[in-house]
């Protein structure tokens, strides 16, 4: 039972991490329909930016996080502006953008490895606290992962529902054609979602830096799991991305209660496989055709 409780909390923590990644990726994907593969290395770049701010510039963690978010937002927006937008203007198929994104993925990942070296990076002297609640252990960083997910997704939800820009994003997500007709500048909206989505990814990136350290190749898993969370939850739904991420984390953790851990990397996909077969529109998505 103790093990179950621990696994449950683990699932919640990791699920929160996935959910936040999914929220950022999903916002970009649902609005622009670009499979933004380079979300991965931008996540990595954010982690290294936070490392740079905390370790080299000596900023406090919160400021480092903010710095990372700015770097990620800038990179994300630039990616849209200089990589995807030209393809969009020429009305290329979305597959072309996907392969271009892959090209950027390779470029960024290797660039980071050259600039920062191939070894791992940790924030020197940073020590997190450990809490013991009943039989369950967790650290302050893990608590941070859950809180960050709740606070950021809630703010994002409010932003989308209440503000003028947020509503423009929702309208574009719903129907880009219609959005253009009613006078929304969809290019501007795309730029905005790339900035917000990328900035969102910087928070989990910083937390991972604090928890496990940063490596140049950490981005692949991040974008992969974000993509999967979005599809499991349903494209175009913030609630869906959160639910998808949490579900993945839970399945991955609780699923291994009895199953040998060598199946860790595939168990989420077995569930995913079944979910999509039985409920192709995702857990929360609307049926799209």
């Amino acid at each position: 039972m103790d093990l179950f409780a621990q696994l449950f909390v683990n699932g919640l923590i990791n699920g929160s991490h996935y959910a936040l990644l999914g929220a950022g990726f999903g916002l970009i994907f649902a609005t622009t329909r670009i499979v933004h593969f380079a979300y991965g290395p931008i996540f990595t770049a954010a982690a290294y930016a936070a490392w740079f701010a905390a370790n080299v510039l000596g900023l406090p963690i919160a400021a480092a996080m903010l710095f990372a978010a700015l770097v990620a937002a800038a990179l994300g927006t630039a990616t849209y502006q200089y990589l995807y937008l030209p393809f969009e203007l020429r009305q290329s198929s979305s597959h072309v953008a996907l392969i271009a994104s892959l090209g950027l993925f390779i470029v960024l990942e290797n660039l980071i490895a050259i600039v920062f070296g191939t070894g791992g990076r940790v924030v020197d002297g940073y020590q997190y606290d450990i809490f013991l609640v009943g039989p369950v252990y967790f650290s302050s960083v893990q608590l941070g992962q859950v809180i960050a997910m709740i606070v950021l997704t809630a703010s994002l939800g409010v932003y989308l529902a209440r503000t003028r820009h947020g509503k423009a994003i929702l309208a574009t997500t719903d129907n880009p054609e219609m959005a253009r007709i009613i006078g929304i500048d969809t290019v501007k909206v795309s730029r905005l979602v790339f900035a917000i989505g990328s900035a969102l990814s910087a928070i989990p990136a910083t937390l991972i830096l604090l928890k496990d350290g940063a490596t140049p190749s950490m981005g692949f898993f991040a974008v992969f799991i974000a993509f999967v969370a979005v599809i499991v939850g349903g494209v175009g739904s913030l609630r869906g991305a959160i639910a998808g991420g949490l579900a993945l984390g839970m399945v991955e953790s609780l699923g291994l209660w009895k199953i040998p851990t060598e199946w860790q990397s595939s168990i989420a996909f077995i569930v995913l496989f079944l979910v999509v077969l039985l409920r192709p529109q995702g857990l929360f998505g609307r049926a799209v055709n």
Binding site: L83, F87, I99, G103, I106, N110
Partner: peptide, 11 residues
């Protein structure tokens, strides 16, 4: 890196 840049350039 060059490979990635060329891929994008060709596209």
């Amino acid at each position: 890196i060059i490979y990635g840049v060329l891929l994008i350039a060709i596209l």
